[in-house]
Nucleic acid binder design. Structure first.
Lengths: 113, 113
DNA sequence: AGCGGTGTATTATGGCACTGATGCAGTCTG
DNA sequence: CAGACTGCATCAGTGCCATAATACACCGCT
């Protein structure tokens, strides 16, 4: 019975990525401060910072010290593309193999998309 | 870049489950001994034992002390069913939402089958 | 009985990821 | 400048994971 509890900072990272792709964190706008998001999510500010860190490294977010972090132009599309590539290259083959083993029909599940 | 590799005992558990479902570890036959599998996989016998443990708890494997562990009749099918349920209930919805967000279409996934 | 094969229990130890508390550095506004 | 807000760095604590070294209990064979 794998509870599969991903680390908090990765869960936050996924939430943030989704929000950027969906435009809820719009390009050019400021992200919630680490403290604000930490309070909202009941997490530690440092854990939130760790989640933000990766977006800075990838140049999807710009830091203005003392001010805040901003979503750069084109971040949503770039993020969507890279996530998409990763999904198709790394995750989907495994998922597909797993589904085959378990007797789950991919065509059937994807039909009513 | 945290590779975030799953714990060894869980990876082993997945390997074993796959082998049972595929019939490579056939019903009624004896599983590799903890020491043998440990040597083969370069792991610690206790780690292998931990992986085996869960199958005993679920009654998919029978222990004959001093002899070995045997795959019970119907284990493959039972395991396949439960894994299938878990997959459809826990994993598939998330995968599906993720695909929608990333703009992955059903047709393109099934094309390169 | 003896031997070698099984799984199991115990204890100790090292590593590493995650989380947390505190304080510092930079920027803006009044 | 004073205060309140930003992000960031440092240090420390915690828990899980994996390993290791033994020792034990059971079974089947010779």
């Amino acid at each position: 019975m794998s509870t599969q509890s991903k680390p908090v900072y990765l869960k936050l990272r996924d939430m943030i990525a989704a929000a950027i792709i969906d435009g809820r964190y719009a390009e050019g706008e400021m992200l919630p401060s680490v403290r604000a998001l930490a309070a909202e999510q009941g997490a530690n500010p440092l854990t939130v910072a760790k989640a933000y860190q990766q977006f800075q490294n990838d140049g999807l977010v710009e830091v203005q010290r003392g001010v805040g972090m901003y979503v750069v132009r084109g971040a949503a599309e770039r993020l969507r593309r890279s996530e998409r590539e990763n999904f198709l290259r790394d995750e989907w083959p495994e998922i597909r193999a797993r589904m085959a083993r378990l007797g789950v029909s991919a065509t059937e599940l994807l039909a009513d998309a």
